[in-house]
Amino acid sequence: MRKSRDKLVGFLFVLPSIILIGVFVYWFIFQNVSTSFDRVVTRATKRELHPGGVANYSQLLGSDDYQHALFNLLVLTVVFVAGTMFFGLLWAILLEKGVTAEGVFRSIYLLPMAISFIAAGVVWRWLLAPGKGDQASGLNQLLAMMGLERFQSSWWQSPNSFSMAAMAIPAIWQLSGYVMALFLAGFRGISDDQREAARIDGASEWKIYRHVLFPQLSPIALSALIIVGHMSMKMFDLIYAIAGQNSYKASVPSTMMWTQLFQQGDATAAAVNATILLVLVALIVIPYLYYTNKTEKEVRG
């Protein structure tokens, strides 16, 4: 009796958030998906914009512009995730070795995260200015001052198809500190006894990292990977602030969605785009949630 009453009270406590999330997340997702299947005919001129149903999806997936945007997203995500993981881990190891004034360095590395993507984007728009030679500004000017003119680049506006990798630079700058904090917490969670034991057994520093510390960090590395990866797929504000509206070189599905909804007034195309993006992110996040749930259960017994 008592137990079921507790359960009821508990349920009543979580009910408001169930309702709110139900409406504001799941109902809207449902709305979005149902919009994406609409058949659309313009009111005044009676042209069919979207045939309706699954054909809406093949229409978008088949368009060159969307494929270009998807490819850009892939390049951005790979470079961004690899970059943040590399710098995050590097800084965490350096700090973990016990530098003097560790707090100062930690703040310095974490600080970029405190700046909004939009504000950072305005600065990076200038830093990544494509002018070279006499017109160089931002990073290109810095390279010229160091005598490294031949490394000047048009960054994300370079003609080659992997130019989107340059857009990952500001994103890496902004989020490496966050990954560092995650790894640092992981290192701190490993007791010193284990390192001492390894040292007594004659393990080199590299071997301690390789065989003792890194294996214990893998759940954290996975979390960092998922968090940074899905941020990259949803990234809009930074790209919008750097490249402005309608930039072809910097187009990714999320900036394209903005164009579709607000410039082309095409809610259906935007909904199709949003649904595909949701599925892509879900493909990464759901297996991860499933995995963490399972391991947590195992730990709890």
Partner: peptide
């Protein structure tokens, strides 16, 4: 229209690099 303008802008942006 805004929609047409957006398409022309994207084309011009593409041309600027290519």
């Amino acid at each position: 229209s805004l929609a047409w303008n957006a398409d022309i802008s994207t084309a011009i942006s593409k041309f600027y690099v290519s």
